[in-house]
């Protein structure tokens, strides 16, 4: 089954009277299979966050059709569909709602009318899953950004979502925090292969880990395909100001210098061979 189907989606923000309306998304179409993980990349202002907000119905589309899990997203279905999806935003502070870690994980459960007796177990289960079990009574001001993001993930996972969106969830973290979140994401995937993950990122290394990449540019899908396919279009990416992941960049630079190696060989192996030669 398709988890997400977006057809001819257009959107523009409300503007003042004298400003001209600018289409942020323009006739955008794509679809995502259940269990797939997709990375959205694109230059600043290309509408990635806007797209995420449209998909969780925080914004209302101008034209087009969004179908999630076989159900069209509209006013009647939004409450039902929201129960099946969760989103993690960029800023760790601005999505921490509860006074402590345990209250924050419980916030969504309270909204979903989970009985009080069941909540403690669920809170502990997901705190354990994201490695925050020892911090249950800590307040957000005493947590690192990465820890806060892990709590946000626990909050989302505790609702057992079928689709998870991540809008630059690692952008405000240090490399260690970023690595932890990415490891957690792949763990999520492993535990629940049916979970569909859509992430927005500026880190090409993160995009490389996804099944498919969609490049947004000027409101359209500019390039779309497997990471290897997308990153083989170095020139096209460069034109819109995007870069290759480090090891792919290295490979392409090596190729220009007439080194020969297998395309999907590990970069460490290649370097070893070159150094030995």
């Amino acid at each position: 089954m398709k988890a997400i189907e977006v057809e001819h989606l257009s959107f523009s923000y409300e503007t003042g009277e004298n400003e001209e309306k600018k289409n942020i998304l323009h006739d955008l179409s794509f679809s995502v299979e259940q269990g797939e993980s997709i990375a959205f990349i694109g230059p600043n202002g290309s509408g990635k966050s806007t797209l995420m907000k449209l998909l969780v119905a925080l914004l209302e589309k101008d034209e087009g059709k969004i179908t999630l899990l076989g159900q069209e997203l509209n006013e009647d279905s939004v409450d039902d569909l929201r129960k099946k999806m969760g989103i993690i935003f960029q800023n760790p502070d601005n999505q921490f709602i509860g006074a402590t870690v345990r209250d924050d994980i419980a916030f969504g459960l309270e909204n979903r009318l989970i009985p009080h007796e069941d909540m403690e177990d669920i809170v502990r289960e997901y705190a354990l899953k994201v490695g925050m079990i020892d911090f249950l009574d800590k307040e957000p001001s005493s947590l690192s950004g990465g820890q806060k993001q892990r709590v946000a993930i626990a909050g989302v996972l505790s609702m057992k979502p079928e689709i998870v969106y991540m809008d630059e969830a690692t952008a405000m973290l240090d490399p260690k925090g970023r690595k932890e979140i990415m490891e957690l994401t792949s763990l999520m995937k492993k535990e629940n292969p049916n979970m569909t993950i859509l992430m927005v990122t500026h880190h090409m290394e993160e995009a490389l880990l996804c099944d498919r990449i969609i490049v947004l540019h000027e409101g359209k899908a500019y390039l779309e395909g497997t990471p290897l396919y997308v990153f083989s279009h170095e020139q096209e990416l460069k034109e819109i100001g995007l870069d290759l992941p480090f090891n792919l960049k290295l490979k392409s630079a090596l190729k220009k210098e007439d080194f020969s190696f297998d395309e999907d060989e590990d970069i460490k192996e290649i370097m070893k061979n070159i150094c030995h030669a």
Partner: peptide, 12 residues
């Protein structure tokens, strides 16, 4: 941002 986060997590 907070309002968005609360809404998506089902707060009414």
């Amino acid at each position: 941002d907070l309002a968005d986060a609360m809404e998506v997590r089902g707060y009414d």
